[in-house]
Computed example of a mutant assay.
Amino acid sequence: MSDVVVARSLDEAREALASQPDATVLAGGTDLMVEINRGLRRPRHVVGVAQVPDLRRWSVADNRVVVGAGVTYTEMMTTALADAAPALAQAARTVGSPPIRNAGTLGGNLGTASPAGDTLPVLAALNAEIVVVGPDGERRMGLNDFVVGVKRTSLRPGELIVAAELDRPRGRQEFLKIGPRNAMVISMAGLALVADHDARTVRCALGAVAAGIPRAREAEAWVAERIDWENGASVDDAVADEFGSRVAAAASPIDDHRSTAAYRRHAVAVLATRALKRAFAPGGNRDA
């Protein structure tokens, strides 16, 4: 039987984890309870953080968005967060059913660290800085330093995910994914694309097609030089198609029970082409 501590403040959560550094952190439980019910996990110590107000907070500034680890998918979709980080809202809409979206959290998606986690490509494309606290104080790191493998993070014993801090660039954001049906499905391939009109750059991150969450940096640099930033920031079909092919080259997919590697690579190319066209469609700019 597990020893369960229900923290009601960030200090209580930190104290509980300091006394039991190997404890499992429980937020919405949408991933953890599946593993427990299947007999894959039997945590001896659990620290519940769903009632910690500090983790449920979020804020929006001109160029930065801070999302607490306890913010749910529903909140990402239905609050002003949806305007400040539209790709995050798009990703949240694809997660499970309404009960899952009401319970599941950003911190839970980060902590699970699955390559198919829907919010993770968005965080990568928005240059997220992950904030954690633990016995040695606060640490901040980029997503690639936080997610170090399939369902593996760089969290140290006793550390807790507190928030993700995201860029808020001026430009359209897109999240797209593909699965065997339109809803309540684990991604076979996913992609987030962010246009930054001030920096004149495009950022593109991939999900479910590698061990981590890669950025298609060569494709990003290539396409940024071919966008007509001066005259409405437009792209033609040939550029969009080539961009898709270059993004697909950044993927390293595998064959598994959900898809073949070849299909995943093809899907990434299609998603990238589609996302770029949407991001630079007429009227796609966000006001500064």
Results as ranks from 00 to 15, higher is better:
Val270Asp: 03
Ala84Thr: 01
Asp241Ala: 15
Val270Ala: 08
Leu206Val: 04
Ser259His: 02
Ala199His: 05
Glu174Pro: 01
Asp236Gln: 08
Ser114Ala: 14
Asp241Trp: 11
Asp256Glu: 02
His257Asn: 09
Ala80Ile: 03
Gly29Tyr: 14
Ala85His: 01
Ala69Cys: 05
His197Thr: 13
Leu206Gly: 05
Leu271Glu: 02
Pro253Tyr: 01
Asp22Gly: 12
Leu166Trp: 07
Ser2Asn: 05
Ile178Pro: 00
Val4His: 14
Glu15Phe: 07
Ile178Ala: 04
Val185Leu: 07
Val60Ala: 08
Ser19Val: 15
Glu165Val: 15
Pro214Arg: 08
Val95Pro: 06
Val209Pro: 02
Asp62Phe: 00
Ala272Tyr: 05
Ala16Asn: 02
Val185Arg: 10
Ala224Arg: 07
Met77Ala: 10
Val25Lys: 05
Ala128Ile: 04
Leu155Gln: 07
Gly158Pro: 01
Met188Lys: 07
Gly134Asn: 06
Glu242Asp: 12
Val65Glu: 03
Ala189Asn: 09
Gly283His: 11
Val5Cys: 13
Pro21Glu: 11
Val5Pro: 09
His257Tyr: 14
Arg44Gln: 13
Val133His: 11
Arg226Asp: 01
Ala69Asn: 07
Leu26Glu: 10
Pro99Arg: 02
Arg265Lys: 15
Gln51Met: 13
Val247His: 00
Ile36Tyr: 02
Gly117Cys: 03
Thr119Ile: 06
Ala221Lys: 08
Ala288Phe: 13
Glu230His: 08
Arg278Glu: 12
Met184Thr: 11
Gly28Thr: 05
Pro115Thr: 13
Val5Arg: 12
Asn182Leu: 15
His257Val: 15
His266Gly: 04
